[in-house]
């Protein structure tokens, strides 16, 4: 081999490494910038009053207490709908579904559900839950809409977690005379729980940050108190941010960025704790 070719290859190697590295570095840089900017802009707003007071002067003063509570309500309701249905569907797909065309179609539908734009879910929620089902714009309608959006995430997470449980554990349980059902809920599910819980929390955290699906299904901008029933309307962090910026002249920068910080911190702390918990559990259980 000629030496020139080797040298050329080495130069190409260096350049390629540099370019790829720069791409990766720019991703890190953008993420760090986003994080730093939010913290920098928002941290000044965070105090006890901000977290416990109601918004005043169309959000230009006061706090965001009912806004936080609204988001908590909606996400809790979403979790209550999504988790049982999603986990059961995941168990069915992983443990019971026959390998046939119908199952393949279901899988395809689930991955496709995950790709439907959030605004289309918003339209669907408006047409189906708010109008057709007559629920009206409410916590319930918004939670049902977010449920449709989060279901594929929970189903996929459950399936994935169950698939990682080795087959011989199942066989050992069956060989001891346990039925399939008992095998699943005594052996397989407990072992898969970290994956299922974490995957679901990540999905729900994402739902907490969504604006488009709740835009027409129950989120409102001005409300003095927290929602008192599943059928009342609510304020929510992402919608509050959007509404301030687009429809309040001279919006209070500090307070809006403070709201952003609360939202992002909430979503990412919950996600990170969940992910860290999963990796600790995984390290404990090595197959």
């Amino acid at each position: 081999m000629s030496r020139a070719r080797t040298r050329q290859a080495r130069v190409a190697e260096t350049i390629a490494r540099g370019v790829m590295g720069a791409m990766a570095a720019s991703v890190i840089a953008v993420a760090l910038f986003v994080l730093a900017y939010i913290v920098y802009q928002g941290v000044g707003a965070i105090d006890w009053q901000f977290l416990t007071d109601v918004p005043r002067d169309r959000g230009r003063a006061g706090g965001i207490y009912p806004v936080i509570i609204g988001t908590v309500y909606v996400v809790t309701a979403t979790a209550a709908f999504t988790l049982p249905v999603g986990v059961l569907a995941g168990i069915y797909l992983s443990e019971y579904a026959p390998r046939n065309l119908a199952t393949r179609a279901i899988r395809l539908a689930i991955t496709n559900m995950a790709g439907v734009p959030s605004i289309v879910y918003g339209l669907f929620g408006l047409a189906a839950f708010v109008l057709a089902a007559g629920i009206g714009r409410s916590v319930l309608a918004a939670a049902l809409t977010l449920t449709c959006m989060t279901l594929p995430v929970v189903i996929t997470a459950t399936e994935e977690a169950l698939r990682q449980i080795p087959q011989d554990i199942r066989q050992a349980s069956l060989a001891l005379g346990a039925t399939k059902l008992r095998t699943i809920y005594k052996v397989v599910l407990p072992a898969a729980a970290p994956g299922i819980v974490t995957g679901s929390i990540l999905g729900l955290a994402r739902a907490a940050g969504e604006t488009a699906p709740i835009l027409f299904t129950g989120a409102v901008f001005q409300m003095r108190q927290t929602p008192d029933s599943p059928l009342s309307q609510f304020m929510a962090l992402p919608y509050h941010i959007y509404a301030q910026v687009t429809s309040v002249p001279d919006w209070n920068r500090t307070l809006v960025w403070g709201t952003v910080l609360v939202l992002v911190a909430g979503v990412s702390i919950v996600s990170m704790v969940a992910a860290a918990w999963r990796s600790v559990q995984r390290r404990k259980i090595k197959w």
Binding site: I28, I38, G209, E210, T211, V260
Partner: peptide, 24 residues
């Protein structure tokens, strides 16, 4: 590190990206 960074980026709500875009 990269994986956590990517996860963080995916977790930031779109309205926040919008706001940062507006501001910066």
């Amino acid at each position: 590190v990269m994986k956590s960074v990517i996860e963080f980026m995916a977790a930031v709500p779109s309205v926040v990206y919008g706001l940062i875009g507006v501001a910066v």
